[in-house]
Design a protein around this nucleic acid. Structure first.
Length: 545
RNA sequence: GCGCCCGUAGCUCAGCGGAUAGAGUGCCGGCCUGCGGAGCCGGAGGCCGCAGGUUCAAAUCCUGCCGGGCGCACCA
């Protein structure tokens, strides 16, 4: 049993005897060590009902808990109930961690349920930038976390390979093609200026010669067909660099062909949620509190991106997902409100769709802070970033901040192979432990079975603190899932490593008689949790570095 | 103007109803002849953007204001 549950149960049993029943039994980590290992503010919640002071209630509870075998002491301080754990209680925690091994932290919260995580979903108009990198890492790590909690997770990329942006892209390529032939055609208004189209233009100039002197319907078709697969290849290279694989790619055209656009329109019409104006079809969003009414069907009869996106989400529902999480940038906020409104009007279950919204990335490097734009051709390609700092640092840095906060990617720090770099700090703890085990093996000090060693020599304060930290791991994963906040896992791992390193510096592991096997067991537990955490982040946990 | 997000140590950021607000980095001062010194220990450094309100209790919730980001297309 986890410590939090242990404390809760102990309190509950006592409350029953006293005839009190709080709405919940909160268990916290006290801010300072002298206040115990765990605490509860339950007395505050009972004060009103019992018409007694919190301190008074806490006194009674502490008194009633005084003989509990798991605690060396239970104190009532200013209304708080503070628990001091006996070392044996913590030793049992460590033993449980080692016993659960690679399953430690896993859960059944999502068992039997299907979750789709949609992320990146960048239009194939160019390679991915570091901004997409944040989304790639976030989506992938969230998917990992939900898998740990039992969900059957599908990673999905929504590919928008039609429409006006692709046309502009094709025309931009055509202009590069003309330029390669010595015809100084300009990049179209709102077109794509990136260098990545130049070599393709040259290649097509060699292949086609002067076959397409005009930007007409035929050229449009040819250049569109040339450019999209090439852009997709670039995107796949970027995704591979950062270590992300998708299970399903869905194209906008697939959704339209399934007839879902017509069905959605029909159902919205029945609800009186759409109207016609200026030859287009609009969604009545203002009457539902949104800022403006968006167009669903243009006056030329084609559906807007929003329209297809709504239909796409109906499709997700039909495909049997119990829950969908879309990872999107801050520039999609308005659309998110519109999609959610439409799904509500369509009668989909509330909560079927959640958005993990993230702010943008700026790059802090030797050249200062850069702003990026794919259209203007001003960006750092994701693959180039990964090549420079490595996949581990790239992934770690992308998720180490709260998604809804801006991320300043410190390029120089990410490259550093020293403990200033948080990813190395965590990895180094893992490596260090691996090294100790190699040494223990060489010296013949490695016990055959760590599970059955006597843990009673573990009584140094850091040792008990480390076990307390190991106990938190399952809970950290759950909070990460609930908050869409993988950064909390990074913080946890840094904290764990941050207790281990000083401990290691102060306390010798090998050659310490009965303490050695016990400390090796502790190190095995730390190594396991570091490995589990780093794996979930998609970061290597090296044996040597 | 409207919507959403963010203003916490010099810098990058955690904490988001509870007890003296934390970490990393930077700065200052000590250590370091053993399992990986790619370190370790200590110190200084904060009207938690501002002003009200709710609460036994507010960095945390509510309102207003100020500052920054993003969006407000028959683009995606």
């Amino acid at each position: 049993m986890q410590l939090e549950a242990l404390v809760q149960e102990s309190i509950r049993s006592v409350l029953d005897r006293l005839g009190l029943s709080p709405p919940e039994i909160p268990v916290d980590r006290p801010p300072r060590r002298e206040l115990g290992d765990l605490s509860s503010r339950v007395a505050f919640l009972l004060a009103k009902e019992a018409r007694r002071s919190p301190q008074d209630i806490a006194n009674d509870l502490a008194q009633a808990l005084s003989g509990h075998p798991a605690f060396s002491q239970v104190q009532a301080v200013q209304g708080f109930l503070n628990f001091f754990l006996r070392p044996e209680t913590l030793h049992e925690v460590l033993r449980r961690v080692l016993r659960e091994d690679l399953a430690y932290g896993k859960g059944q919260e999502g068992a039997g349920k299907k979750l789709q995580v949609e992320f990146v979903s960048s239009n194939p108009t160019g390679p991915l930038t570091i901004g997409h990198g944040r989304q790639a890492a976030l989506g992938d790590v969230l998917a990992n976390i939900f898998s740990e909690l039992g969900w059957e997770v599908t990673r999905e990329y929504y590919l928008n390979d039609e429409g006006r942006q692709i046309e502009l892209l094709a025309q931009s390529l055509w202009a590069r093609y003309r330029q390669a032939l010595g015809d100084p055609q300009p990049i179209p208004e709102g077109g794509y200026h990136g260098d990545y189209l130049i070599p393709i233009g040259q290649e097509l100039a060699e292949r086609f010669g002067n076959a397409y002197p005009e930007w007409n319907a035929e050229a449009k078709k040819v250049f569109r067909n040339e450019v999209v697969p090439r852009m997709l290849r670039l995107i796949e290279e970027d995704l591979e660099a950062i270590g992300v694989r998708f299970d399903v790619w869905t194209r906008e055209g697939d959704i339209i062909r399934k007839g879902l656009v017509d069905e959605v329109l029909q159902r919205l019409r029945e609800r009186g949620a759409i109207y016609e104006k200026d030859g287009a079809i609009w969604l009545s969003a203002k009457t539902h509190g949104l800022g403006r009414d968006p167009v669903l069907i243009r006056s030329d009869g084609t559906p807007t991106y929003l329209m297809v996106d709504i239909a796409y989400h109906l499709d997700k529902f039909r495909r049997g997902f119990d829950w969908v999480v879309d990872v999107q940038g801050a520039d999609h906020i308005e659309e998110q409100q519109q999609v959610k409104l439409a799904l509500r009007l369509l009668g989909l279950p509330e909560g079927f769709l959640s958005y993990c919204l993230h702010q943008f990335v700026t790059l802090k490097g030797a050249e200062g802070i850069e702003k990026m734009s794919t259209r203007a051709g001003k960006f750092l390609r994701l693959k180039d970033l990964v090549d420079e700092v490595g996949r581990d640092a790239a992934r770690y840095f992308m998720v180490m901040r709260k998604p809804e906060s801006h991320l300043v990617f410190d390029f120089e720090l990410a490259k550093k192979q020293s403990l200033e770099n948080p990813v190395y700090y965590v990895q180094y703890a893992h490596t260090r432990i691996a090294s100790v085990f190699r040494e223990a093996q060489a010296r013949g000090e490695l016990p055959a079975d760590l599970l059955s060693v006597d843990l009673s020599p573990l009584k140094e304060p850091e040792e008990l603190r480390l076990i307390m930290e190991l106990d938190r791991f399952p809970d950290v994963l759950r909070v990460c899932a609930r908050e869409f906040g993988p950064h909390l896992l990074c913080e946890y791992l840094e904290n764990l490593a941050g207790i281990f390193h000083p401990y290691y510096a102060r306390v010798r592991i090998l050659g310490q008689g009965a303490a050695t096997p016990a400390r090796l067991a502790l190190l095995a537990g730390i190594k396991l949790v570091l490995f589990r955490g780093l794996s979930i982040l998609g970061v290597r946990a090296p044996e040597e570095m």
